[in-house]
Computed example of a mutant assay.
Amino acid sequence: MCIHDHKISPTLMPNCFTGSEAMFADLCYFSVGSVQLTFVFLVLPCLLLGYLGQAAFLMENLTTSEQVFFSSIPSWAFWPVLLVANIAALIASRTMTTATFSCIKQSTALGCFPRLKIIHTSRKFMGQIYVPVINWFLLVFCLAFVATFGSITDIGNAYGTAELGIMMMTTILVTIIMLLIWQINIFIVLLFVIFFLGLELVFFTSVLGSAEAGSWVLLIFAAILFMIMYIWTYGSKLKYESEVKQKLSMDLMMELGCNLGTIRAPGISLVYNELVKGIPAIFGHFLTTLPAIHSMIIFVCIKYVPVPVVPQSERFLFRRVCPKSYHMFRCIARYVVSQCFGHGHDLILLEH
């Protein structure tokens, strides 16, 4: 955050505990009650005292060019606060990478982001994942960002833009939850939006005035990320519509007969597609190009459903596609977004 020409760094002490927020959301390490109590009785007082103290220090030292956060604390508390600040930075970096991995995994499951290699590091906790490409990207991007600017003022401007963007997005998402899930009175929702979003927009317009001093990097990065997600979503939609239009008709399958006009070799063939009904066009390409096809064919479709838990008995839905002599089946694997595995692991489960 930047006010005029003075440098203000966020209070770092509460970050040791605010990091638990993302860990709770991603890995369920902490209970809801513990997070609520910590935020109300520890984080909020620390933030208020920290920011009010810095504001009071600025009012008394308008011409200071030092780092306000460390200049406003007593000299005897410098080293303890520096130690806590470094611990908070370590926790914040761990939280950021965990939250990024979780967002990428869920975006991939929803079809909003290109598929990446996701490694599940624990068999007990489903949320513990590692995305090598994203991890290396964060490393390179952070080093390039710090090396390019090298000024805490520019980094502070970028931080303020990112923080206000998160606050506005949180307000928008809470508004949607209030309308669709909690079903709160529309007038109360409007008051909530006008007050909080209006206040956040005022601050956001102020930080946009310093966009050329560091904030432009995050704005460009957000625009590039949005374009990647938009293009991938648009392309996935076109691909699905194409599969629906070009799927093979049942009349054609009946004309080919139970041998499908080719040689049926022993074994099981798994054909992954997005269709929940019908035979994909790619299967017709297999029939015309491959010298033989397996004796049992299973069309695998993985869907992610918006429910908290999918019972084990309802996770895999099997049904016959053609008459019994064809030995063709469809398997719909249903997963919650937070329960999804890599696609390769799903196919191995189905094959067994």
Rank of each mutant, 00 (worst) to 15 (best):
I279Y: 15
G267M: 09
P280V: 04
N273I: 02
T289K: 07
H285A: 02
T288W: 00
T288H: 05
G284H: 12
T289Y: 06
S269Y: 08
R264H: 13
L287Y: 04
I293D: 03
F283D: 08
G267K: 01
A281C: 11
G261R: 04
I297V: 11
Y272E: 06
L270H: 08
V276Q: 05
L275F: 07
L270E: 03
L270A: 07
Y272G: 09
I268N: 14
L275Q: 05
G278H: 04
A292Y: 02
L287F: 04
S295Q: 14
G284V: 12
A265S: 13
L270I: 13
N273M: 06
L270F: 08
L287T: 00
L287D: 00
I279K: 10
H285S: 03
I263E: 14
F286R: 00
G284W: 14
G284T: 14
R264A: 07
A292T: 13
P280K: 09
I268S: 12
L275E: 02
A265F: 03
I268H: 15
T262R: 00
P280S: 11
Y272C: 15
I268G: 12
G284L: 14
Y272D: 06
P280G: 14
E274F: 08
L290P: 00
T288M: 07
H285I: 03
I293K: 14
Y272N: 07
V276G: 03
P280R: 05
I263G: 01
H294P: 01
H285T: 01
I279N: 13
H294I: 00
A265M: 09
G284I: 12
G284E: 13
I268C: 15
F286H: 03
L270P: 07
P266L: 14
A265N: 13
P266V: 07
G267V: 15
V271L: 08
V271I: 09
E274N: 14
A292R: 12
L275N: 04
S269T: 09
T289H: 07
I279Q: 10
I293H: 09
L260A: 05
A281D: 11
V276P: 00
A281Q: 07
I268E: 11
T262N: 03
G284R: 02
L290G: 01
R264L: 08
A265R: 10
A292D: 05
T289I: 01
I293Q: 05
L260M: 08
F286K: 00
G261P: 08
L275I: 11
V271E: 02
E274R: 13
S295T: 08
A281M: 07
L270Y: 08
I293N: 08
G267C: 09
L260P: 00
G261A: 02
I293W: 01
T288A: 14
F283C: 10
T288C: 04
R264Q: 12
